[in-house]
Amino acid sequence: MIKHKRTTIPILLFIGPAVLVLTIVALFPIMYALFCSFWNWHLHRSTLREFIAFTNYINLFRDVRFLKSLGLTFLFTFLTVGGTIVFGFLLALLVWKPFRGKNLALALMTIPMIMTPVVSALIWKVFLFEANVGLINWLLSLFGIRGPAWIATSPWAFVSIVIVNIWFMTPFVLLIIEAALSGLPKETLEAAAIDGAGYWKRIHYIVLPMLKGTILFILIFRITIDYRTFDIIYTLTGGGPAFDTQLLSLWVYNVALRTFQIGYANAGATVMMVAVGLICFAILVVATRERRERWLSK
């Protein structure tokens, strides 16, 4: 290995600009959000601005609507992360063995993830979930079931956003697990098969343990991304009916841009950020040190 004497200048030249821009566009706004959260700050009435220390935070935990958003967000994240991992894993097993047209099949299965979320949500809303002429209720009517008004009534609105998000994100899990499966050592699996281990036994005792690192990676990805879901829900339900699908991102958006309480909204956003940070931290702590190392510094 060649030792370079000077590394300061190359670091500044190569990494400096990116770090500087990230600081301006990401770090500084977070600081600013923290700052705002200690103020009673109305978006359009600048005369009423006053420093109120932690009052916003105290109010948050008395705010039924905020607590409901928090609970709904956890439930939504739990359901969609679980759903996508189960479906993604089963699909990956399905396409594990090579077959003719596998690449095309994978390409087509990737499409939900590629499509503009706003557009997908709109299609689901207008053509599939629509109460009277929607396809889902038409299909149900073939079996003599009268389908609900999906988007407009509880709990179906919540069910709808979960369904659409699982549809949207399953390909992500599929692709990652598919790649991980094709990287598994064939010899081990063949040896187990010869020893008489059945299909599901091989999956349970050999494949799943080998995929642990991958599943950790998927968990972090899926949790953080579902936790912040905005576009799909905003388009599908707008948070309704009766705030039953108002997840945290929508809560922050509505408080900031509908009631203009910017300070309060920023306090909510801060709590949202800290909560997901703690969840990720907990997952990384539970994961073994070796995996954590590999993750942070490949």
Partner: peptide, 23 residues
């Protein structure tokens, strides 16, 4: 730096959006 990159990637975007709007 890697931690910074990773946190920005996983941060709820609404946390950036409000302060950016004000700024």
């Amino acid at each position: 730096v890697m931690l910074l990159v990773l946190s920005v990637r996983f941060m709820p975007y609404i946390v950036f959006a409000l302060p950016l709007f004000l700024i």
